[in-house]
Write a protein that binds this DNA or RNA. Structure first.
Lengths: 207, 207
DNA sequence: ACCTGAACACCGTTCAAGT
DNA sequence: ACCTGAACACCGTTCAAGT
């Protein structure tokens, strides 16, 4: 055995998650296999079963990591604009788009229903709900500031989240025509969408 | 050989597409394989290669069928409300959501970037562009009627499409909390989202 | 507890061959 | 032109066994 390697890996579970994320990022979803992940982590192809019941469980763990990362990015963007509700909304949405752009494959697997049944992964459900709570909070702040309409905050949060999520999803899937993407930056398209939601006239979204 | 079967199938290509759609609808994306599709069509597992260069090509053909179906549904909904721009917009969006709900697995594969490179399937690119053109048209009609803001129509079309697409995607992925879906119908959430785009006050969206 | 190797049933794809 | 069967390199998963 090579130096530094023991029979017992130590932290194989996290090593497998890291290896999986690396394969995903570099080679894409189709290349992600348990056997390759095990090989990358330096163990036999059956070793992962000591830590994950099946491939789905590994994917769930990768998704959970992705959501934690996304949550941190959103939280950071919003903290940077504390006291300016509209900027919190816009920069939060922009952080969402940047996360999806920089971590395309992880973003895709997070929302690609590679998971059959979400129910069985409580850690994943937790972080998704906490992330949604962040959106609800920024919506409430903007409603108090008279920027968003006073509709039920959860409803407004779903509408806004859908708009931002749908936009970056369609762009990443290549569904938005190239001619449009040449005419307008992603930032401009996002601004246009969000300005539909806002009561203030011509908000200065464009960076 | 069973009666009615010849060595030459006749229309194997379409039979394979149909078989693929059936597997997809009944067993889901993970169960869709070339070998199973061939078996369902009653041919050997290598026969598909006479009509499709690889699995991606079969998926592209299935996606093309899906978009044709979606286009027909949208066109139908809009034709039913000719002369009423706002209803055309709302019912078109609703038809999109109904298509996704009734053909969940096909809808997912259509937007799940199971295709690596869209470029190589001109029939698929064509129908997606024609479908987007439908959205642009209904946007223009609503702008003329003073219902939507006079922003560039393609930009408005992308914003609205994103909102509707994002909404049904998040719902189908199970990302929208059950408590919210118990409180509001899909129709109500859609209405809430679209009403943000409209200049008319409190449009009577709820069916 | 943690990991291995053989084994099984499945894949996608290629290729020489048959009609 | 259209289809078959054998073959290859890959999968996910199970299981008896080793440390």
């Amino acid at each position: 055995m090579p130096k530094g390697k023991q029979y017992h890996h130590g932290d194989l579970k996290n090593a497998l998650i890291e290896a999986g994320i690396e394969i995903l990022s570099q080679e894409g979803l189709h290349a992600l296999s348990l056997r390759k992940t095990a090989q990358k982590a330096g163990v036999s192809h059956t070793a992962p079963y000591a830590h994950f019941s099946d491939k789905q469980a590994l994917i769930a763990a990768i998704c959970t990591e992705g959501f934690k990362h996304l949550y941190a990015d959103l939280k950071g963007a919003m903290a940077r604009y504390e006291g300016n509700p509209l900027s919190q909304l816009v920069e939060g949405a922009w952080a969402y788009i940047e996360f999806a752009t920089k971590n395309t494959e992880i973003f895709k697997i997070m929302f690609s229903s590679a998971l059959e049944k979400e129910k069985d992964y409580p850690a994943l459900v937790d972080i998704t709900q906490i992330t949604f709570g962040l959106v609800v909070e920024v919506v409430k702040t903007n409603q108090k500031a008279g920027i968003l309409r006073p509709t039920p905050p959860e409803l407004m949060a779903v509408s806004i989240w859908s708009s931002v999520h749908g936009l970056i999803s369609l762009i990443l899937e290549g569904q938005v025509s190239h001619t449009l993407l040449d005419q307008f930056t992603r930032r401009q398209i996002l601004s246009h969408t969000l300005s539909q939601f806002c009561l203030v006239e011509a908000p200065n979204f464009n960076s």
